[in-house]
Amino acid sequence: MSRRVILIVLDSVGIGEMPDSKSYGDSGSNTLANIARQKGGLYLPHLQKLGLGNIHSIAGVPPALSPEGCFGKMAEKSAGKDTTSGHWEIAGLILDKAMPTFPQGFPAEFIEHYEAAIERQVIGNEVASGTEIIQRLGEEHVRTGRPIVYTSADSVFQVAAHEEIIPLPELMRICQIAREMLTGELQVGRVIARPFLGRPGEFYRTSNRHDFALEPPRKILLEYIREQGLEVCAVGKINDIYAGRGVTDYCHTKGNMEGVDKTLDYMAKAESGLIMTNLVDFDMLYGHRNDVAGYARALEDFDARLPELYAALGSEDMLVITADHGCDPTMPGTDHSREYVPLLVFGQDLQGGVNLGVRSTFADLGATVAEYLNTKPINNGKSFYRDLK
């Protein structure tokens, strides 16, 4: 058997508020439907044929009369609405406690200890947009050599530095120190190196970002697949999110379209196992910046690439399209939103038109992938594979 699963995570493409969204400040969030409403409709013909419009009413994406794929939506059982918790839950880990966030910045005492450890003073230590803060503090950073520390509504500690002021190896070193120091109540999901280049007023982030992720506390889906002797190919920030656990090969990408390109490259050479891709532009470039037009355009650009993915599928391949949380650009603020995520499943030998309903956890997807690839079952989730046959 040479089965493969191609699992594409459309980062932040949520499909409606969850019942507990009010407690997260996210009442009314619906990333897909609100973008479509504000844009007067979305043109997503290939996702529409899979059954996207059968999950929820989306302007411009009517329900398919005979969907080619299976469709449904998934609730996040873990506390939180973070990239790490969402991806971990897909892989079988459910978190009882949300990862910590720091809306007032990190404690002064920690910053003092961090400065002593890296032998540099820092600037920033606030909640900020990464693109905005380098424009505002970049000139001071270049003049003083002090790295810019900031966070967001996510559970992250981010360090930005100009590559000509703090070379990449040094930036990675001081980020690794932060990762080792952030323990206990300060144990964020990710420490992120955010290098940039340019001149005052024209600073821009480079593609040399690196995430220092928290190690998953238990075995995850990717490790079960690798133990079965199968390949696990990670595209985008997948390798970083899982701290490399279970991954046999990986590549970073500079944007959604390169993410699709690299997915196709792996489909051309990986004979069995899992190809897992994160397309981050939806979240990073558009959701967090409240860019409705850009988000809509990115959705339509991805939809236009689906025929290439279909053409590369083998007879025993399963294509899955989902997300990890929401980030509704039509809502006030720039935070992630606590939403259901879409679930679309397609394969030449799988049934089409099956309504998979509302799954109680993202781990149902992980359990299904495990069963499809004939690995040991993961710790959480209920497989829906029998509904696909």
Rank of each mutant, 00 (worst) to 15 (best):
I8F: 00
S12A: 15
K22S: 12
Y24S: 10
G28Q: 03
N30Y: 05
I35H: 03
A36R: 04
Q38D: 11
L42I: 11
P45K: 13
L47C: 01
Q48L: 11
K49I: 14
L50N: 02
L52G: 09
G53V: 14
H56T: 15
H56V: 15
S57Y: 10
S57G: 08
A59N: 04
A59H: 03
A59R: 10
G60N: 07
F71Y: 15
A75E: 09
K77F: 03
S78V: 06
D82G: 10
D82H: 01
S85N: 00
S85D: 00
G86D: 04
I94T: 05
D96M: 08
T101H: 05
P103S: 04
E109G: 00
E109P: 00
F110Q: 05
Y114P: 07
I118W: 02
R120N: 09
R120W: 09
R120A: 10
V127I: 15
G130V: 14
T131V: 10
I134P: 11
L137F: 06
H141L: 07
V142C: 05
V142M: 11
R143I: 14
R143Q: 14
R143S: 12
I148Y: 01
V156M: 08
Q158K: 11
E164A: 13
I165C: 12
L168I: 14
P169C: 07
L171R: 08
C175P: 06
Q176K: 12
I177Y: 02
M181G: 07
L197T: 12
R199G: 00
R199Y: 06
Y204M: 00
R205M: 10
S207A: 11
D211E: 13
A213W: 09
L214T: 05
E215Q: 08
E223N: 01
Y224V: 14
R226H: 04
V235Q: 01
G236C: 06
K237W: 09
K237Q: 08
I238S: 04
D240P: 02
R245K: 12
D249N: 13
Y250T: 11
E258S: 05
L264D: 00
M267S: 07
K269C: 08
L274R: 06
M276W: 12
N278P: 05
F282H: 11
N290F: 07
V292K: 02
A293R: 13
A296I: 14
R297C: 10
F302P: 06
A304F: 07
A304V: 06
R305A: 07
A311K: 14
A311H: 07
A312E: 03
S315C: 02
E316G: 03
L319S: 09
V320H: 06
M331H: 09
T334Y: 14
T334A: 13
L343F: 08
L344S: 06
V345R: 04
Q351A: 11
V354D: 01
L356Y: 07
G357R: 13
R359F: 09
V369E: 01
N374T: 15
K376H: 08
K376L: 15
K382S: 10
S383W: 08
R386W: 03
L388V: 12
